[in-house]
Computed example of a mutant assay.
Amino acid sequence: MARKRPVTAFGWEIKRRLAEMQIDQREFCQEYDIPENRLGDLITGTRKATRYREKVEKILGIKYPETKAK
């Protein structure tokens, strides 16, 4: 089955850090009170989800520049 939306560079960084922490996306969302669909939006770049983006960056210790101009 083909992926509906491509994963962004930031999305791969999120996935890499989650793998390093040995936690899956669902567990991560439940533990840090982040809606699963918002994490999905960040991974695919569908929405900016700025509030959750900042929270995810802080928790995972990553900083990735925005790809689109503000």
Rank of each mutant, 00 (worst) to 15 (best):
M1K: 00
M1N: 06
K4L: 06
P6I: 07
P6K: 04
V7N: 06
V7Q: 10
V7A: 01
T8Q: 05
F10N: 00
F10P: 00
E13T: 09
E13D: 01
I14T: 08
I14C: 02
I14N: 01
I14E: 00
K15S: 07
K15A: 10
R16I: 02
R16G: 03
R16W: 04
R16T: 09
R17Y: 02
R17P: 04
R17V: 07
L18S: 06
M21H: 11
M21N: 06
M21A: 06
M21E: 13
Q22G: 04
Q22S: 15
I23M: 15
E27S: 14
E27N: 14
C29H: 06
C29V: 12
E31H: 01
D33E: 13
D33Q: 10
D33M: 06
D33H: 09
I34G: 09
I34R: 13
I34M: 02
I34T: 09
E36N: 04
N37W: 14
N37F: 15
N37Q: 06
N37Y: 13
L39R: 00
L39E: 07
G40A: 14
G40Q: 03
D41C: 05
L42Q: 08
I43S: 02
T44C: 05
T44D: 01
G45V: 06
G45W: 13
G45K: 08
T46C: 07
T46P: 00
A49P: 01
T50L: 15
Y52Q: 10
R53N: 02
E54G: 01
E54D: 13
K55M: 03
K55R: 12
K55I: 03
E57G: 03
E57F: 08
E57K: 11
K58Y: 08
K58R: 09
K58S: 15
I59Y: 11
I59H: 10
I59F: 04
I59D: 03
I59L: 10
I59E: 06
L60T: 12
G61M: 01
I62Y: 06
I62A: 02
K63S: 14
Y64M: 10
P65I: 15
P65A: 15
E66L: 11
E66Q: 09
E66H: 12
T67A: 01
T67D: 13
T67P: 00
K68I: 15
K70L: 14
K70D: 14
K70M: 11
